[in-house]
Design a protein around this nucleic acid. Structure first.
Length: 214
DNA sequence: GAGAGGACGAAGTGCATAGC
DNA sequence: GCTATGCACTTCGTCCTCTC
């Protein structure tokens, strides 16, 4: 598929992590940005270490200034939304749509590239008046696109920062992902703070969280 | 129509290898 | 020694197809 020169790219972080928020970011890229992004070393955030993510995100925030947007859904809000929506892809679509809407208030753009995570109609339905004017291109492995890659870095950076803040607040190093260490830390948190507090830290519908809470 | 299973999307970790 | 990269494997989820 031919990628348009000027477009918005969006991506999310925290979707597969038991603890921490869900963060969705969007970046508006113009033809002149491509060389600069390549020079910075922008690529899919999964291929970059956490330390480098932070350095790159700082550069990207400076470079893009008003041409990026972030939607941050803390675990409490995430659980509330999931209870209402009961479909992760619809929840993601809602987040991506908000990012696109917010960006369209600052820039003029005809196209948005989004990673394929569900049916296109989810995002089309979630877009409001302004967003309906944009053409959505939903493709698998969209992070190969520089705008999507930049968005993935910005989203990941916020996710990591929020996870660090949670670690500080609860006095335990809260891990990423969904593994045995996550379960171990989760059980410690339940003992220390009670099950009710898990709704403010973790994604309650995950099987891992259910296991932690018994 | 409902349920099961496979495919595919996201994320993570761990290990081996290569280059500086 | 440190960092980057690639691969295999794990977890989570949804969607689609097939079978009953």
């Amino acid at each position: 598929m031919l990628i348009p020169h000027e477009h918005i790219g969006t991506d999310e972080a925290g979707k597969g992590d038991c603890f921490g928020p869900l963060v969705i970011a969007g970046v508006f890229v113009e033809p002149g940005d491509v060389a600069k992004l390549q020079e910075m070393g922008v690529t899919d955030s999964k291929k970059i270490s956490d330390a480098k993510i932070k350095r790159l995100a700082a550069k990207l925030r400076l470079y893009f200034n008003h041409r990026y947007n972030l939607v941050f859904i803390n675990p409490e809000k995430y659980n509330e939304l999931y209870t209402k929506i009961a479909n992760l892809n619809k929840l993601l679509a809602w987040g991506h749509a908000r990012v696109i809407e917010n960006l369209l208030q600052k820039v003029n753009c005809e196209y948005a590239i989004i990673d394929k995570f569900g049916q296109e109609k989810f995002i089309e339905q979630a877009l409001m008046k302004q967003g309906r004017q944009i053409k959505l291109i939903q493709i698998p492995r969209a992070e190969q696109d520089l705008a999507v890659a930049a968005a993935s870095i910005l989203a990941r950076d916020v996710f990591l920062t929020k996870l660090e803040e949670l670690s500080e607040k609860y006095g335990l190093t809260i891990p990423k992902g969904c593994n045995e260490r996550v379960k171990d830390i989760g059980r410690q948190l339940v003992v220390k703070y009670g099950q009710e507090e898990m709704g403010k830290i973790a994604k309650l519908h995950f099987k891992t969280t259910q296991e932690i809470m018994g």
